[in-house]
């Protein structure tokens, strides 16, 4: 009965690699901090910071579905979208929907704050974040406490994020996870109009190199 589905690429490879690396690095940062493996923690935090810088750049120059200008809508539009979704009338979107756009911003913000406070944190014994020496010990201690607090916010946001994704899966029968893995959605899940415009991977590599250099420049003694 089912016609074969026509697949359309919506997420470029850089966004997908970014997403799943983010998941792994958040887990790695968590486990390493819990077990006092602060060398590992430092490197996974720095990798995360670099990826976040990359993603912010990509949000301006990347594929259409990756761009902030395309998925950041006014809070009113986001609320309207949510109300319509509740009535079962939410519009289809190739990339992030107006509510999801805010979730993306929220996640990117708290993760960035986490990585930035980490740079100034210390473990009270012998480990100091790479920028901790540039501020007073008291301020470094306060930022360390904040670093611990923000992580609880991250956990909450990630939980909400997963709850939302699974809502689409089980309530609206829209699978968003598969597209985040293989990049494509069936065209019945897409709005009418031209498909997303993807930017070539080599440009993403250039942005990544730029992000690495930027982080290196901030941290150089």
């Amino acid at each position: 009965m089912q016609t074969p589905l026509k697949l359309v690429r919506v997420w470029d490879l850089p966004v997908r690699v970014f997403h799943w690396s983010l998941v792994l690095l958040v887990l790695c940062s968590w486990v390493s901090a819990e077990n006092g493996l602060l060398r590992v923690h430092l490197w996974s935090g720095l990798a995360l910071l670099t990826l976040l810088v990359f993603r912010i750049i990509w949000g301006f120059v990347g594929s259409s579905t990756a761009r902030f200008s395309q998925f950041v809508r006014s809070p009113r539009q986001a609320l309207e979208y949510l109300r319509a979704t509740k009535r079962g009338e939410g519009q289809l979107h190739a990339g992030h929907n107006p509510a999801g756009g805010w979730m993306v911003l929220a996640l990117l913000t708290v993760l960035s704050l986490q990585a930035m406070t980490g740079l100034f944190s210390n473990d009270g014994i012998r480990f100091f974040g790479p920028l901790a020496a540039r501020i007073s010990a008291a301020l470094s201690d306060r930022l360390t406490t904040l670093h611990g607090t923000i992580f609880n916010v991250i956990l909450t946001f990630v939980w909400l994020h997963i709850v939302a994704v699974l809502y689409y899966r089980y309530v609206r029968a829209e699978n968003l996870v598969a597209p985040m893995i293989n990049g494509s959605k069936p065209d019945a899940m897409l709005p009418a109009g031209p498909p997303p415009k993807l930017v070539a991977v080599r440009w993403a590599l250039l942005c990544l190199v730029f992000a690495v250099l930027l982080v290196w420049w901030i941290l150089k003694p």
Binding site: E89, G90, L92, V171, A173, E174, M189
Partner: peptide, 17 residues
């Protein structure tokens, strides 16, 4: 886009309210 598109993509999975 109407909700009909979503139904077309629904691969027969039972939905929760």
């Amino acid at each position: 886009m109407s909700d009909a598109g979503v139904h077309a993509a629904d691969l027969g999975r039972r939905r929760l309210s």
